[in-house]
Design a protein around this nucleic acid. Structure first.
Lengths: 250, 250
DNA sequence: CGTCCGAATTGGTCCTACCAAATTGGTAGG
DNA sequence: CCTACCAATTTGGTAGGACCAATTCGGACG
């Protein structure tokens, strides 16, 4: 029951049939142990193998190409790119959308990036926030209060607060990256807040941060964000101790 | 003569016919002043308008969907998403690939993000670098020395050095983001180093940074990176003073 | 042994045909 | 007059066939 990803409409968690083909191609690549530079089977071959039309294959490959996982060379073939050299952040988002969980290392790296970006970002938010930014933050806080009172899962409110802070930096590049982070950790966040006892503390910390941002105390806001994020990090490390080697729900 | 983007093969700057269609659709959206939530013409209509097959339209839309610019709702239509809420970093990379330059604000934001990520990243690199990381950094330095001696454009060597440092953080999420940054600023970097006098100083700073990273002096390395990036920032601000309101080559 | 030519392969594109679901519009019933 | 229902249209999703141009590779020829 965790996710509910698509933007405009509801459209809950059920997997997309179309992107399912992307997942199957990725699984095929993994199974065949194909690595950087190697060629995939031709489109016609893939179409036959997966029992779909060539159009569907071409669309799936186009998706893989835009996240820089493969390269199409006309009249030659489809080639795997060096994932650790070219892979984009959206390649991870795509995987998460497909239900492939991030592994331990990736989650740790994601947490580290959150600390870097959100702490610095909160500082910028404290310097630059405008009235409409504060309004969005307040709206997120209000929704959070309501969710805590109703005992609902706090995940969506948590995400919206952090995204509102990222927006208050007035840096759209930073906002885009943080946005992707929240798409990457949707399910994990849901599980984190499945324990309803975490929500009230998170809400308290959010309120304190919002006050510092509103007051323009950038340094204090950044410090509060750093402390706030340590809760998540502690949870994750505890989870690793309990079940090492496990995969983390995306 | 600036770019040369695709990974494996050479394939110089000539524009892709296929992604050209993506550019035309984006131009159409811009021209029509379509905004978040609005519906695009149907696939059949777009195909007729642009005088291409429906397949081509579908592939282009698939690309726009993976960078979260549009959403396809089966049996309903194609809808624009809120770009400042959902747009991914790759959406910017896509635009740059298409030859649409970033505007002033976006470049400033990109520079700010570089400062945040690369300064923090260089610190991490100083703490975590392994032998293979240092080898890649050394290789980049060697190529840089050679380029300076030969008087070639330093852009590619500059990018490779920074990417090598980002890789030395051992944080693949950070690496992915920094990687996208360098795809975003390819042309701008080329113009920056068109003045051959900038290369020697950049190379000197790179060497100093590499030494600090090798020595494990994370704080010093981070400080050097901060100073190094200020050259770029100064250049950019100077450029803005000279021709305000202009567009920056992607 | 080297060179050249042609057949097979491959991505790029267009087109036609269907399907299922959503929308829409008109009509019949209350 | 309003509501409820049904049918035609529209829309994205998909399969499959056909052709093009460029690459590739192997065999024939000099």
């Amino acid at each position: 029951m965790p996710p509910a990803h698509t933007a405009i409409a509801g459209r809950i968690g059920r997997e997309d049939e179309r992107s399912d083909l992307v997942a199957r191609i990725l699984a095929f690549v993994a199974e065949r142990r194909l690595t950087s530079g190697e060629r995939l089977p031709s489109e016609r071959e893939l179409a036959e193998r997966f029992e779909v039309g060539r159009n569907a294959i071409r669309e799936a490959i186009a998706v893989l190409e835009t996240v820089r996982l493969v390269e199409r060379r006309p009249n030659s073939g489809i080639y795997l790119r060096a994932v650790d050299r070219d892979g984009s952040l959206d390649a991870l988002v795509l995987r998460a959308d497909l239900g492939v969980p991030l592994d331990e290392a990736e989650v740790s790296e994601l947490i580290e990036m959150r600390r870097i970006l959100e702490v610095q970002g909160t500082e910028l938010a404290g310097l630059r926030r405008r009235d409409d930014d504060l309004a969005r933050i307040d709206a997120a806080l209000g929704a959070g209060r309501q969710a805590v009172a109703a005992g609902e899962n706090f995940a969506a409110c948590d995400a919206e607060f952090h995204l509102a802070v990222a927006a208050a930096t007035r840096n759209s590049v930073l906002r885009r990256v943080v946005n992707s982070f929240y798409l990457l950790s949707r399910t994990r966040r849901w599980h984190y807040f499945a324990d309803g006892r975490r929500a009230p503390e998170a809400q308290r910390q959010h309120e304190a941060m919002a006050a510092a941002i509103r007051a323009g105390d950038a340094a204090a806001a950044a410090g509060l964000m750093r402390a706030h994020l340590q809760s998540t990090e502690a949870y994750w490390h505890e989870l690793l101790q309990r079940q090492p080697g496990g995969k983390a729900a995306s």
